[in-house]
């Protein structure tokens, strides 16, 4: 298509030869300038992603990854520097961020001690997932030192998810290397945590009852308001919406949650 357009330009427009001659010249001139302009912005932070080069092995039936597909994103180093990466994925079984290196396609388990977290594009939706190291959060929702926690909603009330994948006692036959192997089956073990303005964190399930139970000690008026918000909670996305509504309610009447 591009060739066709080029041909038509050449035959129909008088300056066709000039274009052929001048375009490479133009590109030649502009390239060093552009490369310099880009590199200037990279000077401000030292940035290098580090981790162990691993060889993935099949030990279980099912996928240990939150998403099987690699997706693009950015990794935030402890220095605050942000590294754009083309291919990352989260391994929920080992709780590691995997980076597929662009030059030799090595799998690198990113050193968790050197990063604050990562932002990963959802491979199926137009959405970005925000994962942070639990111990670096202002009010760590989990009781673990170096584990990733996903931030689903932030505000006076914050909602977190731990995207664990665990090996169940059930087994399945997996065929690889021409042989069938009986292996333990992997299953999602997602847990959700709601942190409240008073600094408490509650483990909740994405259902109405669990959501409203967090506020069982509050006055009747508060419980009623929460019940109205939590009426529709029947899954993860409903829970996120409910926490968003909770934040709006808190912003309009903070005394309700004293």
């Amino acid at each position: 298509m591009w060739y066709y357009k080029f041909r038509s330009l050449r035959t129909n427009v008088g300056i066709g030869k000039s274009v052929i001659f001048a375009l490479p010249l133009f590109l030649l001139f502009i390239k060093p300038v552009m490369s310099q302009a880009v590199s200037n912005s990279e000077y401000h932070h030292h940035r290098a992603l580090a981790g162990e080069i691993i060889s993935p092995v099949i030990r279980y039936a099912g996928s240990p990854y939150l998403f099987e597909q690699w997706s693009s994103g950015e990794v935030i180093l402890r220095s605050g520097a942000v590294i754009q990466v083309e291919r990352i994925r989260y391994d929920g079984l080992s709780d590691v961020l995997l980076w597929l290196t662009p030059d030799d396609n090595s799998h690198v388990a990113v050193d968790k001690g050197l990063i604050q977290g990562f932002h990963m594009r959802h491979p199926q939706r137009d959405d970005v997932l925000f994962f942070y190291m639990n111990d670096l959060l202002e009010e760590p929702p989990l009781d673990c030192e170096q584990c990733f926690v996903q931030l689903l909603e932030t505000g006076s009330f914050s909602l977190y998810a731990r995207r664990s994948i665990r090996a169940t006692s059930r087994t399945e036959n997996v065929v690889f290397g021409g042989e069938s192997h009986q292996m333990r089956l992997l299953a999602n073990d997602f847990t959700f945590y709601l942190s409240t303005p008073d600094g408490n964190t509650f483990r909740i399930r994405p259902d109405r009852r669990s959501f409203t139970r967090v506020f069982s000690d509050y006055p009747r008026e508060t419980r009623q308001a929460v019940r109205r918000i939590g009426r529709q909670v029947g899954g993860e996305s409903d829970l996120v919406h409910a926490v968003r509504d909770l934040n709006a309610l808190y912003a309009s009447d903070p005394a309700l949650f004293d």
């Binding site: 300056i15 001139f29 302009a37």
Partner: peptide
């Protein structure tokens, strides 16, 4: 006339280059 067009176009390209140089660098 064709040569004039060619020279004009090259001058234009150079101008764009100088502008880009100024804007980026």
């Amino acid at each position: 006339s064709r040569m004039f067009q060619t020279i004009s176009f090259l001058a234009l390209i150079y101008l764009i280059h100088v502008m880009a140089l100024g804007a980026l660098a």
